[in-house]
Nucleic acid binder design. Structure first.
Lengths: 211, 211
DNA sequence: TTTTCTACCTTACGTTTGTTAGATTATTAC
DNA sequence: GTAATAATCTAACAAACGTAAGGTAGAAAA
C-alpha cells in the first residue's frame, strides 16, 4: 500500500513504518468521512489499522496531527489530479471541455481515488480551529486553480457576462462536494453523474426556446 | 421565544416548560450545526440554555431525543416554507419562476429562519442510524415536493429533455445545502446569491452563441 | 396556610476519551 | 549470534462524557 505524503512531510521512514502510517491514515480517513471528527476515537482507528491505540503515538503526536495530515492530503490529491488533467488538454480545447473535464476529475477524486478528499469535505467544518487554519492555504490554492480555469474560459468568451466568477467558483466546487451526501458510486455511474452535472452547470435546466 | 413543534409532538406543556424546551432546542441546533453531533456535549447545550446538564432530562429523554426533534423540525420548516411559497404563485407562473422562487425560499430557510434546517443538513450523516432512519420520512417527503415542482415545469415544456429529473432534484437540493459551507449571510446578500444560483441552475454558465 | 406539583439544581455513577510510560517483541547492524 | 534500534503492546492516568437519583425553591391548588 503506497502511502500518500503531503508536500511538507519529507521525513525519511522505514518501509514498515511507512506502511503502518498509511494504514492508519487510510483507516482514519474512512472513519472520519463516515462518522465525523469527534465521532471517531483512536481505538477505532487503531483497530482498523491492526494495532493498539497507544501504538498510534509512535507514528503521530496526536489525533489532531492525524486529521491535519488527512485534510492536507485530501486537498492536495484533488488539486494534483485536476491540474494534471487540465494541463494535458490541447490549447484548442473549448471552455466547455475544460470545465467538463475538471468536473469529472474532481468527482473522481471524491469517489474513486481515496477517502482523503471526501473526508476533508465532510469534516472540515468540525475540526478544531487550528487544524482548519492549517488546511486553509491548500484550500485557497485549489480554489485559485478553479478561478484560473473559469477566468480562462471567460476570457475566451465562453461564459455569460452576467455570471459572477467569484461566486460561480465556490458554487461549482461546493455543489460537486455535495454529491457526497447522496450519490453512491456502487449504484450509479460516475461518468454519467459528471456528464449530468456538467450539462446543468454549463447549459442549465431550461429549454432555450422558453427561457 | 415561540417554540417550533414537530407534527408528531402534540404534548401540552406549561408556558415555562415550553420556553425552556425552545431554548434547549435552539441552543442545541446552533451547536450541532457548528460542531457536529458528537462534537457537542450536553453541558454545552445546558449552559447555552441557562440551566444545568441534569435539568435537560426533565425536558428530553436523551441526547438522541433532542437531535431527533431538531432534525425533524429542520426538514418540516423548509418543506412548509417552500410549499407555501409555491402554492401562492399564480397558475400563469413559468417553470423558471417556480424554480427560482423555490430556490430563494430554500436558501432563506437555511440562513434566516432558524438553525434547525442547517443543523439537519450538516449533521444528518453523523447521527446514530436510528435517528437518521427516523428523519428519513420527512426527507423523502421534501424531496418529493421538489420532484413535483420539477415535473410540473417539465410537463409545461420548460426543461430540456436530456435532463434526468431524478438526478436534477438531488443535484439542486444538495447544491443549495452546500452554500452552508461557504456563504456568510452577514457578508453577502442572500437575494443575490439566490439569483445567481437560479441563473446558473436554469441557464448555465455558458454563452448561447458558443456552447 | 398548607399541600402538591413543576422546573429546576446538585451530586454522583460508570463509561469512554485522548494520551503517556514502561515493558516487550520484531527487525536490522555488526 | 549478539547488540542496538524500531515498532508495537500493555496498563494506566486524568478528564470528559451521557445519564440517573434525590433534593429544593417557587408557583399553583386546596
Amino acid at each position: 500500500m503506497k502511502v500518500m505524503q503531503t508536500a511538507q512531510d519529507t521525513t525519511k521512514r522505514s518501509d514498515k513504518a511507512d506502511a503502518s502510517r498509511g494504514r492508519i491514515l487510510n483507516a482514519a480517513a474512512r472513519l472520519f468521512r463516515d462518522k465525523g471528527y469527534a465521532g471517531v476515537n483512536l481505538r477505532d482507528i487503531a483497530a482498523k489499522s491492526g494495532m493498539q491505540a497507544g501504538s498510534l503515538y509512535y507514528h503521530f503526536d496526536s489525533k489532531e496531527a492525524i486529521v491535519t495530515e488527512i485534510l492536507d492530503a485530501g486537498i492536495e490529491a484533488v488539486h494534483r489530479e485536476v491540474k494534471t488533467a487540465i494541463d494535458a488538454l490541447p490549447d484548442s480545447a473549448s471552455g466547455a471541455e475544460m470545465i467538463q473535464l475538471a468536473i469529472l476529475t474532481h468527482l473522481r477524486s471524491l469517489f474513486e481515488f481515496n477517502n482523503y478528499t471526501s473526508a476533508n469535505v465532510r469534516i472540515y467544518s468540525q475540526v478544531p480551529p487550528q487544524v482548519r487554519k492549517a488546511n486553509l492555504k491548500a484550500r485557497k490554492a485549489y480554489e485559485s486553480l478553479w478561478g484560473k480555469i473559469l477566468s480562462r474560459a471567460a476570457e475566451l468568451g465562453y461564459i455569460r457576462e452576467s455570471v459572477d466568477l467569484k461566486n460561480a467558483r465556490l458554487m461549482i466546487i461546493s455543489s460537486m462536494n455535495a454529491t457526497l451526501e447522496w450519490f453512491d458510486p456502487r449504484r450509479g455511474n460516475l461518468n454519467e453523474l459528471a456528464n449530468d452535472y456538467a450539462a446543468v452547470m454549463l447549459r442549465g435546466l431550461l429549454t432555450k426556446t422558453r427561457s
